[in-house]
Design a protein around this nucleic acid. Structure first.
Length: 107
DNA sequence: GATATGACATGTT
DNA sequence: CAACATGCCATAT
């Protein structure tokens, strides 16, 4: 059998990957997709996170775009949430971006 | 099934 | 470095 074309499965795999990002590190949408074995599905990762029930234990804040920025509109609630949580994990930001060279999770 | 949308990525200006 | 253009692909209408 090939790789999971079942939406249900693939979604769980993505969530599992995201859940395994260690505290203090981050990953990118594309990175998560790749680690989950589905290249070019960066946008799908976003779609999945969007549908997460509020209060989910999934560390969605550890997923940023390839530039190391939050994908949310600067200043928005989610944006602040994310910034806050990342900072609480010891991640230092230079401006609105974080240094992927330093914080990107590489298993 | 055609068209639009989006928590993306990458290459060009 | 920032703005713009293209490519990508699952979902929603």
């Amino acid at each position: 059998m090939n790789y999971p074309t079942d939406r249900k499965e693939s979604k769980n795999i993505l969530l599992q990957v995201i859940a395994s990002i260690p505290k203090g590190k981050v990953s990118t949408y594309g990175g998560v997709a790749a680690l989950a074995g589905m290249p070019r599905h960066a946008r799908y990762v976003g779609t999945v996170l969007k549908n997460l029930p509020a209060g989910s234990k999934i560390p969605w804040h550890r997923v940023v775009n390839s530039k190391g920025e939050s994908s949310f509109p600067p200043g928005s609630d989610h944006w602040q949430q994310q910034q806050q949580r990342l900072q609480d994990e010891g991640i230092v930001m230079s401006g609105r971006k974080i240094d992927l060279k330093q914080y990107l999770w590489t298993p």
